[in-house]
């Protein structure tokens, strides 16, 4: 028997995770529903005035998206941890950082991507002009990606810990604050009609940093948690 190659193993794990996620449909939809609901609360609490909403829209979209993505984070490894799949993955002989990367990517596909898809709707409801929609989508793709890769570390560390979900937010949120700063800034700039290139490039740099370093930290975290 020939050992499974990296790409093949990655593809297998990715499609398996997607299949499992779609079988538990509510886990995919819950963050999106939460996202829509939270962003509905803001106009009710602040004011329905469009000009006023537009001023704070960038912040609302970003904070709400971050919190919604955080909601799904604790499920990234949990069921695999409980049924022993994670142990098999650790022992599979494939590099764990690669598996961690694929799992984070799969998790992003089922939790981050729906938020990105829903974001133009939310942004429009907050009076974000059409020209700024592209920035909303791009910044959220990068932002939810950063959250998935950084959050994977936190999810790995809090496996099997009591009150893990609260702890997870405490661990992950401070680390994502830079992404929030630049993401919201980029959206804000393009709402005001300026170029959002600067903050978007910085956000991309952060995305690459979390993509390259995150999986290694995640694999260290998983190894510690599985010992």
């Amino acid at each position: 028997m020939q050992p499974t190659g990296l790409l093949r193993a990655g593809a297998l794990l990715y499609s398996r995770d997607l299949k499992l996620a779609f079988r538990r449909w509510e886990q995919v939809t819950q963050p999106v529903v939460f996202f829509l609901m939270v962003t509905t609360l803001f106009p009710l609490a602040l004011s329905p005035d469009t000009a006023q909403l537009r001023q704070v829209a960038a912040g609302i979209v970003w904070v709400a998206a971050l919190l919604s993505a955080l909601l799904a984070l604790e499920f990234m490894f949990r069921s695999d941890y409980e049924d022993g799949t994670l142990e098999q993955l650790v022992l599979s002989g494939q590099p764990l950082w690669w598996l961690a990367l694929v799992k984070a990517l799969a998790h992003w596909t089922v939790s981050g991507l729906p938020l990105v898809v829903a974001s133009p709707l939310v942004a429009a409801s907050l009076a974000v002009p059409t020209e700024a929609q592209a920035t909303v989508v791009v910044s959220l793709i990068l932002g939810t990606g950063i959250l998935s890769f950084l959050g994977a570390v936190g999810a790995g560390l809090t496996l099997g810990v009591r009150r893990g979900s609260v702890l997870l937010s405490l661990l992950v949120l401070p680390l994502t604050m830079p992404a929030l700063i630049f993401g919201a800034r980029a959206v804000d700039l393009s709402i005001m009609g300026d170029s959002s290139r600067g903050p978007l490039l910085l956000l991309t740099a952060m995305f690459i940093l979390s993509l390259t370093l995150g999986p290694f930290a995640t694999s260290a975290a998983l190894k510690v948690s599985m010992e």
Partner: peptide
């Protein structure tokens, strides 16, 4: 060990 990973991150 978990806390150490967190401190490094």
């Amino acid at each position: 060990r978990s806390a150490a990973v967190l401190a490094l991150v």
